[in-house]
Design a protein around this nucleic acid. Structure first.
Length: 440
RNA sequence: GGAUGGGUGGCGGAGUGGUUGAACGCGCCAGUCUCGAAAACUGGAAUAGUCGCAAGGCUAUCGGGGGUUCGAAUCCCCCCCCAUCCGCCA
């Protein structure tokens, strides 16, 4: 959400910035609505003032048992116009609000120009990505293990769901726990177990609504399944006025995420890369406005650290203007190397939203000794997507000799003594026939 | 799901139609006193919008939305939320 007063003052700044995202000038219609709204409001307030004054007089006259009929008629006469103005003001305000809340955040100056992901700028790269001949894609590896079953998931739930079992399920859980422990014990994030169903105001606060309704699962009682823990963790400070010294606040949570993937028809249909439901460990920081850029770098490093500990090759890219998310001023995507695909794929996205979400949520802090409040800055990042990290572990740690997956050192403490996830007995034949995974 | 009781300023808590933006208490800020502090005393302080160069004015806000009325925190209707009890349940 943007500050309408700031837009009034420098509409050009806004239009120029939004143009980088490919938007046509937005401020002319905004300023027009705003002007009309204020005109209606001013006239209405004048009439309200008259009404209040006269009503007060009536009260005084009646207290003395006088006759106030003339005044009462006068006030009654104001009503038609007042009702008219009230409605006009309300309609215009709603329109303006709808318009404003559907416009994306301003971009930071150092966001690279560009139309789509091809223009993203690599900022660093970590790890070796040797060419190998014995690579396999995670869906094949999973089938070979007998622990990844899309057919049954389709029967039970539909497309874009999966059953994991045995060692793979355990590996997924180990990943989540490892990430959570790292963020809480080494990176200073507070662990939170949070609601997964949220109300409309909450979804509005972080920017999923009103614009991205079609991407969300809505319940029959008007609630929404969270598409990411960012939603709940960020809304933790909604409508709060925090003391300055409690900033920054850092939260982490391990949750399922639910997404309709409405715009992704036909994309990534193979394997479990893009699902309606997946696990993710999320990082959220609430900071002082002066600290958010530093925090953005720090958060990105925290996410990268997970991949380093897992010894998974990755690169970090700065998203270009055309690829950056709605609420973000600047975003780093961390992409992990997937040998099976021979390319890097996103496992984390770290964004600084500035005060964009804070405005929507009315999340503020009071600078020490100050009378007025200021909006906090909010940041979110995946630390990291568990499902995709599992894919990366499977493909990078695959041992072609025995079709097993070597457990990365960092995960050993969480695997109950399992050092390698091996195919289930008799699985080869079943897998080749396309039969249901033997582990289920 | 059923029943009952509630939602008022940072907090507690008054207030059932007319200068109530809202008593009182706590907390908070400034000052007096003090070497300094505490206590005591005095004063100050809501949020948003809007008009104005400014000083300042005005409007709205007592869970949310409608309604009655010249006038609503106070009356009526709908909704939401919270608490307790019953039922159900991991």
């Amino acid at each position: 959400m943007h500050d309408i007063r700031a837009i009034r003052e420098e509409p050009d700044v806004y239009d120029r910035n939004w143009a980088r995202r490919g938007l046509p000038p937005q401020t002319p219609p905004i300023l027009k609505m705003d002007g009309e709204r204020r005109a209606a409001q001013t006239e209405l307030q004048t009439l309200q003032q008259q009404r209040n004054e006269k009503s007060k007089e009536i009260g005084a006259i009646k207290a003395k048992k006088g006759d106030a009929q003339t005044l009462m008629d006068e006030v009654a006469a104001l009503k038609t116009r007042m009702t008219e103005l009230e409605e006009r003001e309300k309609t215009l305000a709603a329109e303006l609000d709808m318009h404003l809340s559907s416009i994306p955040n301003l971009l930071a100056d150092d966001v690279p120009d560009g139309k789509d992901e091809n223009n993203n700028k690599e900022v660093r790269k970590w790890g070796e990505t040797p060419r190998r001949n014995d690579v396999k894609d995670h869906a094949d590896i999973g089938a070979g293990l007998g622990m990844m079953d899309f057919e049954t998931a389709a029967k039970v739930s539909g497309a874009r769901f999966v059953f994991l079992s045995a060692g793979l399920a355990r590996l997924e859980r180990a990943l989540a726990q490892f990430m959570l422990d790292t963020h809480t014990e080494e990176h200073g994030y507070a662990e939170v177990s949070a609601p997964l169903l949220v109300n409309t105001d909450t979804m509005y606060g972080t920017g999923q609504l009103p614009k991205f309704r079609d991407d969300q699962f809505e319940t029959t009682d008007g609630r929404w399944l969270v598409p990411t823990a960012e939603v709940v963790l960020t809304n933790l400070v909604r409508e709060d006025i925090l003391d300055e010294d409690v900033l920054p606040r850092r939260y982490t949570a391990f949750t399922p995420c639910f997404r309709k993937e409405a715009g992704a028809a036909g994309k990534d249909t193979r394997g479990m890369l893009r699902q309606h439901q997946f696990y993710k460990v999320e990082l959220v920081s609430i900071t002082h406005p002066d600290e958010s850029w530093k925090e953005h770098e720090r958060m990105t490093e925290c996410a990268e650290n997970i991949l380093k500990k897992l010894k998974l090759p990755y690169r970090t890219v700065s998203l270009c203007a055309g690829d950056i998310g709605f609420g973000s001023m600047k975003t780093y995507d961390i992409e992990v190397w997937l040998p099976g695909q021979g390319r890097y794929r996103e496992v984390s996205s770290c964004s600084n939203c500035g005060d964009f979400q804070a405005r929507r949520m009315k999340a503020r802090f009071r600078p020490a000794g100050a009378k007025d409040t200021q909006f906090v800055h909010t940041l979110n990042g995946s630390g990291v997507a568990v499902g995709r990290a599992l894919i990366a572990v499977m493909e990078n740690y695959y041992d072609a000799d025995d079709a097993g997956i070597i457990v990365p050192d960092a995960l050993l403490p969480y695997m109950g003594g399992i050092k390698k996830v091996m195919p289930l007995e008799g699985i080869d034949a079943a897998a080749q026939k396309g039969k249901k995974a033997a582990g289920l």
